[in-house]
């Protein structure tokens, strides 16, 4: 594998967006890009990552390779990332290490790190990425992040309801409750403020607040978040990157007994 990002902070943002959710991951590298799936220890949150060749300045992968890493170690190396540096990832045919090469042509500086790979035996789940959903919402990632931060302070459960009035985020804590209603809107001047809802059924689902606080860490990857809900499947919170690919978080809901 030889894969070069023209801006090393892209890879840092991707890794930082889920390093607190899962501790280790297998990157599956192939000619169609880098993909990964990992489940958190409690098996409630599943992270699904896709970095297609379009995200790289150059991308080459001669044969499918699995690259297993501890995210805390990788994240330490990526503290060197800066927007003026490129980052190339190298993995040999018989991989036992990942090489990261940062290059700043303006500063005539290059930095090289090597990281030992780890054998990770991870359960893979058959998650349907084209899952049918009762409700799809596209909205501002900044808005969603603010709502999650504000409301999760009040309760460890966070409820999302979608009906004819719009989308309602609510919490009902021991000492306080809160509710935010958003209606569809189109802002032609600032499309990142758009909110669209398509729905075949109303939904009313609850999630544990702590996972939502992890999910919003990925909001640095995209201006928009796409939400998919259905009564029978985990919800999908997805941040799509400008150059293709992105990160999706599948979150299992909480139900009444």
């Amino acid at each position: 594998l030889e894969a070069k990002f023209d801006d090393s902070t892209i890879f840092k943002k991707i890794i930082d967006s889920f390093k607190d959710s899962v501790s280790q991951i297998n990157f599956m590298c192939s000619e169609s890009g880098i993909e990964a799936q990992a489940i958190d220890d409690s098996r409630v949150l599943l992270v699904s990552l896709s970095i297609p060749p379009s995200c790289f300045e150059t991308y080459r992968c001669d044969r499918p390779t699995t690259v297993g890493v501890y995210l805390s170690s990788l994240s330490k190396l990526l503290k060197s990332a800066s927007s003026s540096a490129t980052l190339t990832l190298y993995v040999e045919d018989q991989p036992d290490e990942l090489l990261l090469l940062f290059e700043e042509s303006k500063a005539s500086k290059s930095m090289e790190y090597k990281m030992k790979l780890v054998d990770i035996t991870a359960d893979m789940l058959e998650v349907d990425s084209d899952m049918k959903s009762d409700v799809s919402v596209e909205m501002s990632g900044v808005e969603f992040t603010k709502i999650v931060r504000d409301l999760t302070q009040l309760s460890d459960s966070f409820t999302v309801s979608v009906g004819k009035d719009g989308i309602v985020f609510s919490v009902d804590g021991e000492t306080a409750s809160g509710k935010v209603l958003l209606q569809p809107k189109e802002d032609l001047a600032n499309p990142e403020n758009n909110l669209s809802i398509s729905m075949t059924k109303t939904i009313d689902l609850s999630f544990a607040s702590k996972y939502l606080l992890d999910i919003i860490k990925a909001s640095t990857l995209s201006n928009m978040i796409s939400l998919k809900f259905s009564e029978e499947t985990p919800a999908l919170f997805e941040f799509k990157m400008e150059k293709g690919g992105g990160i999706g978080f599948y979150l299992a809901p909480k139900y009444d007994e």
Partner: peptide, 14 residues
């Protein structure tokens, strides 16, 4: 009180 479901309640292992 609500019960937290897990991914294994919904998806099969590959």
């Amino acid at each position: 009180e609500k019960t937290q479901f897990t991914m294994d309640d919904f998806y099969e292992l590959i």
